[in-house]
C-alpha cells in the first residue's frame, strides 16, 4: 500500500463503521451495503485480471457460484463447519481455475471472452442439473447463518464481517500491484513479447492471476450464501458475469479503487431502477454507453479529471 491509498482506506473504514448508526440500523440499507461489499470482492479480483493483466473473463459468476454452492452444500448436506466449507470452496475454485485457465489463457481478447463465457455456462448447467446436490432450479435453502463465539452474525455484524474481507483483500491487492508481481502483470498487459524477453513467464502469471481472481470470487460467493441463506442457479448466470464486468469497466478497470467504486455504483443503481421494471436492462445499457463514451477510463478517472486532478 502506498501513502496515497491510506486516506481513502481510512475513510472507508470509518464510513462502514458508522453507517449502521447513520441509517438507524435500517436492515434494507445495511443489506445493500453487504451486497456492495460482496460484489467488490469479486470486482477487485477481476480488476487484477482485466485491468492489470489485460485478460478478460465472462465466467466469474461461475466461480462465485462454486464458492456459494460449496458453502451451501457442504454446510447443509454434510454438516461441515462454515469455515471449512469456505476453504473447500476456495480450493475447488482454484483447482478449476487452474485447469480452465491453462488452456484458455492462451487465447486473446474476444476468444478468451468466449471461452470463459462457455465455461460459465457449463457451470450454470451443472448448478441446474445436479439437483441432488444443488437442489436444481428450485434452489438450495436452509444455509446456516454464521456465528462468532455463539454470537449470531447478521445485519450490522455481518456487514462488518464482509467489509473486513473487503479491506483485507483491498490491502492485499494494493500491495500486490505495487510489487514485482504487479509489475509483471502489467508488463504482460503492456507487451507480452517484451515481458517474456525480460524473463517474465507471461503465461504462468496469467494463470496465477486467473486463479487468484477465482479465489476472490469464491470467497464472495461463500459470504453471499451465508448471508442470503438461499441460493438458486439464476444468481450465477451469464447476466451476473456481465454485470461484474460492467462494474469493473464503469468504475475503471485499471485501478483497484475503480473496481470498488464500480461495484458500489452498480449495486446501488438497480435499487433505484427497480421502478422501471422491464426497462431496467435498457437503463443499464444506456449508463454503460454513456460512461464508455464520456469516461472511457471509468468513473473514478472521469471524476478525478473533472476536478482537475492528475491522471495517476
Amino acid at each position: 500500500m502506498s501513502k496515497k491509498d491510506f486516506y481513502p482506506l481510512l475513510m472507508i473504514v470509518i464510513a462502514i463503521g458508522v453507517f449502521p448508526w447513520v441509517v438507524g440500523g435500517n436492515q434494507y440499507f445495511i443489506s445493500i451495503l453487504v451486497f456492495m461489499g460482496i460484489n467488490s470482492i469479486v470486482t477487485m479480483g477481476l480488476s487484477l485480471l482485466m485491468g492489470y493483466a489485460g485478460q478478460i473473463s465472462l465466467g466469474h459468476a461461475g466461480f462465485f457460484g462454486i464458492g456459494a454452492y460449496s458453502s451451501g452444500i457442504l454446510t447443509t448436506k454434510y454438516s461441515f463447519h462454515p469455515i471449512l466449507a469456505f476453504f473447500a470452496g476456495i480450493f475447488l475454485s482454484a483447482v478449476i481455475a487452474f485447469l480452465v485457465g491453462k488452456p484458455t489463457l492462451r487465447l486473446k481478447g474476444h476468444y478468451m471472452a468466449v471461452a470463459t463465457l462457455g465455461f460459465g455456462e457449463i457451470l450454470f448447467i451443472f448448478f441446474n442439473e445436479l439437483s441432488p446436490l444443488t437442489g436444481g432450479p428450485s434452489g438450495l435453502s436452509g444455509i446456516p447463518t454464521l456465528t462468532f463465539f455463539g454470537h449470531l452474525l447478521e445485519g450490522t455484524t455481518y456487514l462488518y464481517l464482509v467489509w473486513g474481507f473487503v479491506i483485507i483483500l483491498l490491502l492485499f491487492s494494493l500491495n500486490l500491484i505495487n510489487s514485482r508481481v504487479g509489475r509483471a502483470l502489467r508488463a504482460v498487459h503492456g507487451s507480452e513479447i517484451a515481458a517474456n524477453a525480460m524473463g517474465v513467464d507471461a503465461s504462468w502469471y496469467k494463470v496465477q492471476v486467473f486463479v487468484l481472481s477465482a479465489v476472490y470470487a469464491s470467497m464472495a460467493g461463500s459470504l453471499y450464501a451465508h448471508f442470503v441463506t438461499f441460493i438458486s442457479p439464476s444468481s450465477f448466470s451469464l447476466m451476473f458475469s456481465i454485470l461484474l464486468l460492467m462494474m469493473v469497466v464503469v468504475g475503471g478497470a485499471e485501478t483497484i479503487w475503480g473496481a470498488l467504486l464500480g461495484a458500489m455504483i452498480l449495486t446501488l443503481l438497480p435499487e433505484y431502477l427497480r421502478g422501471l421494471e422491464d426497462f431496467e436492462v435498457l437503463a443499464y445499457g444506456a449508463i454503460l454507453m454513456v460512461v464508455l463514451l464520456f469516461m472511457p477510463q471509468g468513473v473514478l478517472q472521469g471524476v478525478r479529471s473533472l476536478f482537475g486532478g492528475k491522471k495517476s
Partner: peptide, 14 residues
C-alpha cells in the same frame, strides 16, 4: 524480475 523471487503471497502480504 529475473534476479528477484517474491511471489503473490509475499508481495500481497508485504
Amino acid at each position: 524480475h529475473r534476479q528477484t523471487a517474491s511471489g503473490i503471497l509475499s508481495a500481497g502480504l508485504r
